[in-house]
């Protein structure tokens, strides 16, 4: 079963359009949703969560159609972390526990307090005294303290230092050990996604450029550096994005489509993002 199925999801604004997004996230997997700022990541997540109305298309979460909104029992199974802590800063961890306990039938105060302790969150301290990292940890503790099967994370690790990000990734890794769980996470910190994701979806200017398995993507894509004079020997279909400098050409290529003898380097997700988004314009 797929944890998330999106089919032709479309939303038009006067200055931006999200065009026919389709992707599937299988159970037991993590999908990284990448793209530059303003590409449409948050809009897609808002549509998935029914925060905004879609113009067309369909979203199925954990096998349930959401065309008439997300049913409350379904929401019990979704843990959401938005890019900021959404609790009033005057509240404390204990207050949040009381609020969420009343909101979720499956809320576990014991699990929440355990995570709070593990994260070093003072239960008596007001949220305004927490650092950004601590606020995100609080949001993540909330998402993990009820019967979540699908985590939807919108830039949950952005603005955090590498140590905190690593701790959070460990938590997500632990969560995904259960094959009945899945994670859909948007981020522009591609290094994090490279560590944890099974699938990568890249969105650019409201269009989904690809959605595929990370390993096959990283296996297929490579960076080619060569003098401009011999660049013409390469099949244009092999070049996904390029940057031409006075010293030659640097390109993101499909390794399997370039002639033998050309030396290539490993392409990171960052390279893929930059070349496809920026290099595409130079083509």
């Amino acid at each position: 079963m797929n944890a998330l199925e999106i089919e032709n999801l479309t939303k038009h604004y006067p200055s931006f359009s999200l065009n026919h997004i389709s992707l599937n996230l299988p159970m037991g997997c993590v999908m990284g949703f990448i793209g530059e700022n303003g590409a449409g990541k948050s809009t897609t997540i808002s549509l998935i969560l029914d925060l905004i109305r879609r113009d067309s298309g369909s979203v199925r979460i954990l096998g349930q159609d959401t065309s008439r909104g997300l049913a409350l029992p379904l929401k019990e199974q979704i843990g959401v972390v938005l890019d900021e802590c959404c609790f009033s800063e005057v509240l404390t961890l204990e207050d949040v526990d009381a609020i969420m306990n009343a909101a979720y039938r499956t809320w576990s105060s014991q699990q929440f307090r355990r995570l709070g302790k593990e994260f070093g969150l003072d239960p008596k301290k007001r949220i305004k005294n927490y650092s950004r990292g601590m606020k995100m940890k609080l949001s993540i503790a909330c998402a993990l303290s009820h019967d979540s099967r699908l985590l939807i994370l919108d830039e949950a690790t952005s603005g955090l230092d590498p140590v905190v990000r690593d701790e959070l990734l460990d938590l997500f890794y632990e969560f995904i050990q259960d094959e009945e769980h899945a994670i859909f996470m948007s981020s522009h910190i591609t290094g994090d996604l490279e560590k944890i994701c099974d699938y990568i979806a890249l969105i650019h200017q409201g269009n989904l450029l690809f959605c595929e398995e990370k390993d096959s993507l990283l296996d297929r894509m490579a960076i080619l550096k060569c003098p401009a004079a011999i660049a013409s020997e390469i099949d244009p279909a092999a070049i996904c994005g390029k940057r031409v400098t006075p010293f030659g050409m640097e390109a993101l290529v499909n390794r399997f489509l370039i002639p033998q003898g050309f030396a290539t380097e490993h392409a990171s997700l960052d390279d893929i993002l930059v070349y496809l988004v920026k290099g595409g314009k130079d083509k």
Partner: peptide, 8 residues
């Protein structure tokens, strides 16, 4: 936006 994602 967060409240709408809770079972409310």
């Amino acid at each position: 936006p967060y409240a709408v994602t809770l079972p409310l």
